[in-house]
């Protein structure tokens, strides 16, 4: 780690102005990615602006339209929230399956979504549930948010304040964990939204979370496991590493999608 100045922000606006004041300033949410990359000397911010004290970035609200989570919602808070468990169980379960206890107690939704790790879980929820990302300057639709590996629509200085998830008719997330890191090697979130449309969002398999149109179409016609069981996703462009070659990941997308549909119907 290199030396840096530590600052605390009292609100989202305060964080934004502090961020603007230094070219090499960075936000600190749960630190589960940030601190590790600083320790490895891969990141060297001049200033670290801690969002933990920004009250307007916290809180979980549930109403008829959906569930809105403050950016600083810790994974553990989301996982054990009785309201989320009731209104959007798929999200509580997804958050409860991230990392380990320590990671869940520190890591935040905003940090995870802003970081956009190709193997992270939350991006599948944001895209699969057609959520809206609210920032200090605007609202961004899920389909426009995740641009590429570690790349999002966020502009320099823009801070995620909350994310709103509409309540689907049914949804489930199936995660095939990387045996070593336990991140998603392939994670598939299947949701039948309130208007009957279906979303299938895949994380871990490609450079960035993506939707599988063929599966969505098939499930809109018939929301059954059989509808996706034989839909193959091309292996081209999928991630390949020592844990999974691209063809294996492609195969797992189909298996996880099928199992997610089964779970959503259960």
């Amino acid at each position: 780690m290199y030396a840096f100045r530590y600052q605390t922000a009292s609100s989202a606006a305060d964080a934004a102005s502090r961020l603007a004041a230094h070219e090499d300033a960075k936000l600190l949410a749960g630190g589960q990615t940030m601190i590790a990359s600083m320790k490895l000397r891969l990141a060297s911010p001049s200033d670290l602006i801690d969002l933990a004290g920004a009250a307007d970035l916290r809180g979980i609200t549930v109403d008829a339209r959906g569930v809105t989570l403050g950016a600083m919602s810790r994974h553990a808070e989301v996982a054990r929230s009785a309201e989320v468990q009731k209104a959007l169980p798929v999200l509580a379960k997804l958050a409860g399956g991230i990392g380990d206890r320590m990671v869940r107690n520190m890591g935040t939704m905003g940090g995870s979504v802003a970081n956009n790790d190709p193997a992270a879980d939350y991006p599948a929820a944001v895209l699969g549930l057609n959520a809206t990302v609210t920032t200090t300057t605007r609202s961004i639709a899920a389909d426009d948010f995740f641009l590429g590996m570690y790349e999002t629509a966020l502009q320099p200085g823009e801070i995620i304040t909350s994310i709103s998830f509409p309540i689907p008719k049914r949804a489930a997330y199936m995660k095939f964990k990387n045996p070593a890191s336990r991140y998603a090697m392939v994670g598939v979130l299947v949701a039948q939204l309130a208007d009957g449309s279906v979303r299938v969002a895949v994380t871990g398999a490609g450079p960035v979370v993506f939707r599988v149109a063929a599966m969505e179409k098939a499930l809109e016609a018939s929301f059954t496991p059989a509808a996706v069981a034989s839909i193959k996703v091309p292996a081209d462009g999928l991630n390949a590493d020592i844990h999974a070659q691209a063809d294996y990941r492609a195969h797992l997308i189909t298996v996880m999608a099928k199992r997610a549909v089964e779970a959503a119907l259960a």
């Binding site: 045996p179 070593a180 890191s181 991140y183 590493d241 020592i242 844990h243």
Partner: peptide, 21 residues
């Protein structure tokens, strides 16, 4: 499994992200 890359000779499994305990 400790894996070295046959081209570069680098240790591919150099962290717990890749070396599976």
């Amino acid at each position: 499994c400790g894996i070295y890359d046959s081209g570069s000779g680098q240790l591919t499994t150099g962290t717990f992200l890749d070396y599976c305990m």
